[in-house]
Structures are given as C-alpha cells and as structure tokens.
Amino acid sequence: MSQDPFLPGPRLRLAGRAGGPLDGLRFAAKDLFDVAGHPTGGGNPDWARQNPVPTRHAWAVQALLDAGAMLVGKTVTDEVSLGILGENAFDGTPLNPAAPGHVPGGSSSGSASAVAQGMCETALGTDTGGSVRVPASFCGLYGIRPTHGRLDLAGMMPQAPSSDTTGWFARDAATFALASEVLLREAPAAAPPLKLVVATDAFGFAEPETAAALAPLLERLKRLVPDWREEIMAPQGLSAWGRAQRTLQPVEAWETFRPWVERDNPRFAFSVARGLVMAAATPEAERGWAALLRQEVRGRLRHLLPPGTILAMPTTPFPAPPTGLPLSALNPIRDAILCLCAHGGLAGHPQLSIPGATVAGRPVGLSLLAARGADALLVRTALDLEKA
C-alpha cells in the first residue's frame, strides 16, 4: 500500500496566525487530533464514519495555529493507536526515509515520516505506550513524551487515559525547542542538569550493537553533566514493567472503545481485534498486580529523578525492523520494545528521544528522562547536546 504519510484525498491546509513565534513553519497532525470540519479517523474507516465530524480544533492543533504554524495535513496512525510499529491494514505503512524497507514506528508513524521526509518542520503525535518515542528512534528525530497530565488533551482521541499524552517531532534541536516552548508554555530551562543517571539495565537489555552505537552520544552527555553514576532503573526487571503496562494499557483501551464496539461492531485488523478481545478477558488479579507494580515504578523513578537530575537510556532496544513481517515475528519485537517504553505510561515522567546514532545505517535514539514537570530541562539538554 501507499507509503504516503498523509491521509488519502485532498491535502488539508490551514494557515496559522501571522507574526507568531512559529510563523513560516509547517506542521502535521496525527489522525487522532480533531480539525474542525474534517473527520477524525483514528486509523480506522469505521471510526470516522460512525462518529461526528468535530466542530473545534484539538487544543494542540489550535496552539500551533495560534503560534503561526501552518497545518499541512493529517497523518496516518496505527489503527485506533493500538500499535507500535506503524503498519496500518487500511492506510498502509508510511515511508521511513532514514531506513527504507523498514517500519517507521508507531502509532504516530505518519507524523514521524512527514517530518523525517521534510514535508513539515514539526508534527503532532500521541504517546501512550511509546508512540512518539519509538518512531523518533526509528526515524532519527527528536520526539518527546511530556509529563503525563501537563498538556490539555481536548480534541485528542483517547486510548488509555491514565497513560495518554500529546507529543511532537522535529529534525533539529532548535525547531524542537521552538515547538516545545509553544506547547509547554515554558522556555527551555535556564540551567543545565546537575546530575546524570545511566540506566545500566536498559543499556544491557538493548542489543549490543545498539548500546555500542549510542556510546559516543552518551559520552558527549557525560561531558555536559560530569556528575554521573550508573543505576539499575527497574529492580523488579524491565520485563515486569513491560508486563504491567501490557496489562493496564489494553484494559483501559478496551474500556475506551467498548461502547463503540458494542454499538457499531466496527471492522478491525486481526491483531487489533485480538488485542481488544484479550484485554476484555484480563483477570482481575492480573489487573491488581499491575496496578501495584505501577505504584512501585512511580516510587522508583521519583527516587532516581529528583529535581535537576536526568536519566539516560536507549529509546528502543534495536533499530527499525523490516516492514511486512508475519504476526508470529511481530509479537516478540513488540514485547521487547515495550520493556524499554513501559515506564512512560506507568510513571508519567517526561522523556525525550534524541537522534545521533545508527546501527547498520538505521537510526536509534538516546532517551533522557527527568522529574515530572521538568520537561524544559530536557529541552535545554537537547540544545546543549547538539552544540557539544
């Protein structure tokens, strides 16, 4: 199917307010964000057909328009955002220009692809279980999952509200900082980080080639933040963190989509339908265990990330896998990715994926985490690291 990152049909274009701080910049919006007068499809043709056309822009879309950026289109997403690789059975797989023949990452696949191809300077995505961080890593972009609850999510199609966030992409740190200042309503931090924690278990979990590729970028970061130490991020095991998020997120997604499913019996790709069915059958005991582990994760990250501290880890355990793999090969890939992304939904700390490394020519990102609310510290660090 088509590798165009934008939805089929006439390209949507909306001019931003003249004279704003983003005047002259173009942006795209994942097809989970409302644009007044245009259907929100959510990657599924029945969602657009069975739900009303929005009459107002989503908060994030309006914020960028008010800042002067021009909306140049809505982008492909994994079906109802329930995916991490960027392949959609209805709309196809957007091109990963940094690794042709490989997935762009999802579910914000089209937004990442559009920025990576130079079709716009920034783009809105969403991140529940890794849907901005993973495509940022696979496509060689800056991509942020902000502090959970910081941004207004009005007009953004929900999936799992206790984990859902709005995020965005850019090719360079300066553009990323401009978009971040508008959406965070805060300038980059005035002072750099005081301390750095290196998550040894996360680097150990990544494939050796990925850890080795990220080593030079990590060394540059250590020169910026010379007070650094190594720590285990997940004492219970990264796989336990992944299992908890893999329990809580689908259960919430089922609760979100259940009224629509029961009312309209929509069409789904097999993998999406299977995930919703399995979520509906999740035992209460498993949900209870996952909720308790979420509390442990939050406590652990509060301990590791006091104000002024950042944590470094690989964004993904490997670069982008090939497109078109069979379902049997995709399950272990998804599970491994989630082991390095689960903390986002579980604890809600801000996380920024920074480009600058490749494995066999395919990008991999280095992620930085900070205390809840310290998003601007990550923006400052990205600017400093690009100059280092």
Rank of each mutant, 00 (worst) to 15 (best):
A191I: 11
G105W: 02
A154D: 05
R150A: 04
M119E: 12
L196N: 07
P161Y: 02
S108Q: 11
V134A: 05
A202G: 00
V198S: 03
W168L: 06
M157H: 09
F176S: 02
L178R: 15
W168Q: 10
R150Y: 01
A114I: 04
L151W: 13
A136R: 14
K195I: 00
P135Y: 06
A116S: 14
S137F: 05
T128N: 00
T126S: 15
A211F: 02
G129Y: 00
L178P: 00
P188Y: 10
P104Y: 11
A190C: 12
E209W: 03
S180W: 06
G130R: 07
R185P: 00
T210Q: 05
M119D: 11
S113E: 05
T165N: 07
A173R: 14
S109G: 03
T165I: 03
A190G: 15
Q117T: 09
E186V: 08
F169S: 10
G125C: 13
Q117Y: 08
V115H: 09
A123Q: 08
E181W: 14
E181N: 10
L184E: 06
A160I: 11
S108P: 04
F176T: 00
Q117K: 07
A199C: 12
L153C: 10
L141Y: 11
S109P: 00
G155Y: 15
A170H: 01
T147E: 05
L196W: 10
A154P: 00
A211L: 04
L124N: 10
P193G: 09
E207P: 02
S107K: 05
A114L: 07
E207C: 07
A173K: 13
G106H: 03
A187S: 15
V182A: 01
A136I: 13
S137Q: 08
A112W: 03
V115K: 11
P158V: 12
R150C: 01
P161I: 02
S162M: 04
T165R: 03
